[in-house]
Structures are given as C-alpha cells and as structure tokens.
C-alpha cells in the first residue's frame, strides 16, 4: 500500500514538473526578443493588416493573460494556431506523431533484442579476445553522431548500391486503407529500414553494456554456482539462469531510452526526410513558427515525462529484485 502511495506522490510531482515545463516553454518562446510575427508580416501589408494579424494570434494581450489563455487552451487539448500554416497546431502534430513513434519503437526493439543477446554473449565470453575487441567498438557506436551514421548508411545503401529508398515513409502516391496496412507493407518497411537501423545502431550500446554488467553480477550468485555444480552446461547456465535474472533491470531502462530516442529522432528524421515530429520541430524553429515549435516540443516533453514516470514505476515494482543484487 505504501508503495502505491509513494507512486501517487511521484505522479503528482511529475504533474508539477509538466506544469513547470509548460511554463518554461511559454516563457522561452514569448520572451525572445523581437516581434514573433515579424517573419510572417509581408512588407506590403498595411498597418491595419499587421494589427489584425497580431490580434488574430492574441499577441496584443498582456503577457499574463496570454499565459492563462495558453494554459486554459492546453487543458482542452488546444495548442493554438501555427503562424506559418495558419491552421491548428494540434491537427498537424497528431498526424506526425505516429510516424515518430513507430520509428522510435521499432529501432529500440531492434536495439534491445540485439543488445540483450550480445550483452549476454559478451558476459559469457568474458576475458576473451572477442570481448576485448568488441567493447571499444560498442563504445564507439555510442560516440557516433547519429546524423553522420545516417549519412554514411544513406551514401552506401541508397546512393551507391540503390538497395533502399532515400527518404520518406512510402513511395509516391501510394495509399493504404489503414495505418496498420501501411505499417505492414513492404513499401513502408523498406523506407523504414535505414533510419531505423541508424537509430538502432546508436542505441544498442546501452542495453548491451547493462546486460553484460548485470550478467556478470548475477553469475556470481549462489544459485548459478549451484547450477554449475549440478552439471548443467555453461551456456545453459548463462541463458536459463543468468539471462533471466539479469534481464529485468535492462527492460526498465527501455522506458528511459524511449525518451532519449525521441530526442535523437530530431536529427535522423531530417537526414531521411522522415515526416515526424522531430523534423517538424526543426522546421518550425527555423521558420520562427513559435506555436508549432512549442506544440511539437511539448508533445516530446510529455512523452519524456511519461516515460520517466513509467521507469520509476517499473523500478519500484522490481525493487526487491534490485536490492537483492
């Protein structure tokens, strides 16, 4: 019961955090110097037209009132109107969010599947030359700029070999009845492959290193020694006993990784012309479209905070397992 209570407190704290992030966002965009609409006021506009535009976006109101309007709108799921597209920000963001999520989750699933297996294997091969050679390589993948990796993959597999398309989520003019039909089509998957691999190569390092280190811990435990005494083969010991126990903490890191990955998407989506939230954010910032940039930023922040909460929850559930080690 106390665990439930502490979780409740944590949830409230994070709600407070969300409010703080929302406020920081508001101030960050409103307190920037210059007229926020400057980029959208055509030189040929008359003074009345300029004023009408400013009124239309509520920028003639005092700051505190703008703030409360903004909060009130947010509570109703309203993210305001884009300066550039003149249409509701929420509409665009909901359309782009699935593309970003599918890229994020597919790359993380690949990264974790590979990282967990390779981490267990490296723990098993501890002290060998293989391990000595593999570790620096793994660390180097963490040191790669993701966009650069994307550029290299693009240059080789798309421009040189022509195995994969250069960008977008699907071939020109193709349409599908549902998102599910789209996401399971070979058309979509071939477009997904390169950006997904780019992100996966970058993110496999964390589960791999975590898994390896947990495995090494677990394998020193008594029950492993027992299993060995019982005469099980070393590999069976690693898989059947070691991996299972080492796995849970690795899985909790998945939630945190989702948050980090969303941020990495920002650059990779730009390299692969992927129509997601990250590219939208970059475009909006470059075009000084504050409401849109604010909306995209907020959406990413919400996912990050939600994932932090989920990670907290998982940790507290798995607490005995962790303290046991």
């Amino acid at each position: 019961m106390s665990k439930f209570k502490s979780f409740l407190i944590r949830t409230l704290q994070l709600a407070l955090v969300l409010w703080a992030v929302v406020t920081i966002l508001f101030l960050m965009f409103r307190l920037m110097p210059g007229n926020p609409l400057a980029a959208y006021i055509d030189p040929t506009f008359t003074a009345e037209q300029q004023e009408a535009l400013i009124r239309q976006f509520g920028l003639d109101q005092p700051l505190w009132r703008q703030y409360f309007t903004y909060l009130a709108n947010l509570l109703q799921g309203e993210l305001g109107y884009s300066f550039r597209y003149r249409t509701p920000v929420a509409d665009r963001i909901w359309l782009l969010l699935p593309n970003t999520l599918i890229l994020t989750f597919s790359s993380l699933i690949v990264a974790y599947a590979f990282g967990i297996l390779a981490g267990a294997w490296l723990a098993w091969r501890r002290g060998t030359r293989t391990e000595a050679a593999a570790l620096p390589v793994v660390l180097a993948t963490r040191a790669m700029p993701e966009f650069w990796l994307g550029m290299v993959l693009l240059a080789i597999f798309s421009f040189s070999l022509g195995w994969f398309p250069a960008g977008g989520t699907r071939s020109a003019g193709t349409s599908y009845d549902s998102l599910w039909a789209l996401y399971t089509s070979s058309n979509f998957l071939s477009h997904l492959f390169l950006p997904m691999m780019t992100l996966a190569i970058y993110s496999q390092g964390l589960p791999l290193l975590l898994m390896r280190s947990n495995m090494l811990d677990v394998m020193k435990e008594d029950f492993i020694t027992m299993a060995k005494i019982k005469g099980l083969s070393p590999f069976a010991v690693v898989i059947r006993h070691g991996a299972r126990n080492a796995l849970l903490p690795v899985m909790t890191s998945f939630a945190i990784s989702v948050g980090y990955q969303l941020q990495g998407n920002v650059v990779v989506e730009s390299v692969f012309s992927w129509p997601g939230l990250g590219r939208e954010l970059v475009n909006a910032v470059a075009a000084s479209d504050y409401p849109l940039a604010q909306g995209a930023f907020l959406m990413i922040a919400v996912v990050v905070i939600a994932m932090n909460l989920l990670a907290d929850l998982l940790y507290s559930i798995l607490d005995p397992r962790i303290s046991h080690a």
Partner: peptide, 23 residues
C-alpha cells in the same frame, strides 16, 4: 530535486535547438 525533475522532463536536444536558434 524538483528542479532536477524539471530538467529531466525537458527534452535535451530540442531545448538546445530552440535556445541556439532564438539567440
């Protein structure tokens, strides 16, 4: 520590992008 929570809630790269772009 609540401030740290807030910092954890801010998406790092987007934040740096926005600050770099607008200053």
């Amino acid at each position: 520590m609540r401030l740290a929570d807030v910092a954890f809630g801010i998406p790092f790269l987007p934040f740096v992008i926005v600050i770099s772009a607008f200053s």
